[in-house]
Amino acid sequence: MRNLVPILTVLAAIVGIWWLAVAPMNIRPALDIAERGGAVVVPEGSVERRNVSAFKLMLDNRAYVAVGYDLKRPRLPTPAQVGEEFWKTTGAMVAKGRAWSKRSLIYHAWVTLQSTLWGFFLGTTVGILGAVAIVYSRVMDRSVMPWAIISQTVPIVALAPMIIVVSNQVGIEGRGVPKAIISAYLCFFPVLVSMVKGLRSPTEQQLDLLKTYSASGLQSFFKLRLPASVPYLFTALKIGIAAALVGTIVGELPTGAISGLGARILIGDQFGTPLAIWSALICAAILAGVLVSAIDIMQRVTLRKMGFVS
């Protein structure tokens, strides 16, 4: 809680800088509009203005700076405009009872969330199973681990269109499955690495103790290695869910999807509606925050129940 004041101060500073930056960013379109409306602008003509710096334009045309704060298609929208657009596509839609309409961000967030959770589930499962195999088999350790690292250096966006082409041809309908595969690809690695660390975290002494109890391999896995790896698992899950969301949005961006937050960004770009892009970005940020906090809460509750000191 003692961090609250500094965080709020920094947030306020960011919004302040954002608000101030709107003026120089939007001065050119603002002057174009003012000139078309019959106002006298120095220098005249948008071609003339191209070589004049934004700050000089602001000084010479002080009366029209305010126009930049109320553009329909701003280069940089004000925080208030983004907030308004975000409210129009979420809260106001709910109030009208159209939360699931295609124009509502709640619908698109839900589409993205589904793929994210499927990808997260898939990636986590692969990561945990891979970690178990790596810990118990030296061959797997030596042959798979280097490729797991290399797999993450391959930019997934390069592969994303191919994954969609292949899964389309194999006969998978819709975009849910390829998106989930892409997010699983980004999500499995942190889980794999942390689980390998976690499953190896019991000390030699602890393993020996279980041997003196004549515990079987399976017993020592479930009673010692698995519980010992839980703190590592949760740390990885927090990274994993954020990575899964990034993967889903990347999967929606270059592929001509029509629903989902990434698709909203893409469509906003194609139709030249920057406000739609910004509100989709805010929505994605909120979604990321909610998902990470949800896992954080699960982590706290589980670790306390298991008796780890927190």
Partner: peptide, 9 residues
């Protein structure tokens, strides 16, 4: 942790 790629456009 945010999907910053979205600012690309």
């Amino acid at each position: 942790a945010l999907p910053i790629v979205g600012v690309a456009p």
